[in-house]
């Protein structure tokens, strides 16, 4: 969205690492940016209404909470069916991300991606079977790619201004 102004961009830059853990976090951000607390709250609300901020929330570390098995399940679902079944897969409470993506034949026949999390691979495999049952004959083939190592992880970085 190109109608973000300079102040919005400064506000995004100032909050993308997180909110300060102080009683009046928006007032503290306001001081740093030479704004008022009311302006910060108003602008953050507007950004949330525009969908630029998806939500303001806590992101738990799912590894720390014992969810150490993480698999990217991928499915080759007939295109028209994928539009119908994709939302049903995304609504499952153990699916953290669910997207329709282009295939890259012949190396990659899969178009539906669903990220699965569990405390063990056995649990993830059981969840995978739930999706397989849900997709039924609409799915031609599937696979699951477990992450073996995190090579890099940084948050989203937007250049200031």
């Amino acid at each position: 969205m190109s109608d973000l102004d300079q102040t919005d961009r400064r506000l995004i830059a100032a909050t993308q690492a997180g909110l300060p853990l102080t009683a009046r976090p928006y007032a503290q951000i306001a001081r740093d940016l030479n704004l008022t607390e009311a302006q910060v709250i108003y602008r953050l609300s507007a950004l949330q209404d525009l969908g630029i901020i998806r939500r303001i929330a806590v992101a738990p570390n799912h590894y720390a909470l014992g969810m150490t098995a993480n698999g990217m399940s991928v499915w080759d679902v007939e295109d028209a069916q994928a539009e119908i079944l994709g939302p049903e897969v995304g609504a499952l409470d153990f699916v953290s991300h669910c997207y329709l993506r282009p295939r890259a034949r012949p190396v990659w026949p899969y178009n539906l991606f669903a990220m699965l999390h569990g405390t063990s691979r056995a649990e993830v495999e059981q969840k995978r079977r739930v999706i397989r049952d849900l997709l039924g004959p609409a799915c031609r083939s599937d696979d699951i790619l477990y992450s073996t190592r995190i090579l890099k992880k940084t948050g989203l970085r937007l250049r200031d201004g």
Partner: peptide, 20 residues
């Protein structure tokens, strides 16, 4: 946050909505 139970606390941005 100190013990690593939280990875982030704050706004989650949508890069596409920001023009990226």
């Amino acid at each position: 946050r100190e013990i690593g139970a939280i990875t982030r606390f704050g706004p989650f941005f949508d890069a596409a909505a920001m023009g990226g």
